[in-house]
Amino acid sequence: MSAARRGVINLLLACLVAGSVYDIATDQEHWPFSQYPMFSGIWRATTFKWHRLVGVLTNGREWTIEDTRYIFPFDNSRLHLAIVRIALRPDAERKLADAVANCLERYERRRRAGQHDGPPLRALRLYEFEWDLQPDAGNVDKPDVRKLVAEVRVRQIAGVEAANRVGQ
């Protein structure tokens, strides 16, 4: 190994190690470096809240969307955390409606393309569910509290799509 190459490799190693150690020591995150804070807090509450998308089927019944396939590329964790951050913004109500409309548009587009086997929806609702934790998670489908945050109907997103086409 030449001296120059060894110098380059040493520099790379120093960057990788120093970046990781720095983030751990200072409790910061500069992806891909991280202090890996997942699950580091203490959970004391026996209740918890989580945002969940609920589809309204053509017969009017509600269908809670739990499988990640239907909210791809999001997942249950990322979508909830994104919603929480959007809800903190000044014009949260409108932005939450935008977010739900976006999820509904993607759901229907992917369904029509055969990318998932979900049922057709008439509307999509965003709820904040609250559960009392049960040892067997038996109430996962029956949250103790359901608070409607936003609702978007298929006709609304169809209207937006049509307006966009006219605009083009």
């Binding site: 699950f39 580091s40 203490i42 959970w43 004391r44 509450a45 026996t46 918890f48 989580w50 969940r52 739990e66 990640t68 997942d75 249950n76 964790s77 990322r78 909830h80 559960w131 934790l133 049960q134 040892p135 998670a137 996962v140």
Partner: peptide, 22 residues
Amino acid sequence: EWAFSDNFRLLLMRAYYHVSDG
């Protein structure tokens, strides 16, 4: 306290409420 409390037990229970990426 992370280990010597109900924290982990509650985390385990919560995991079954579809809150993660898997």
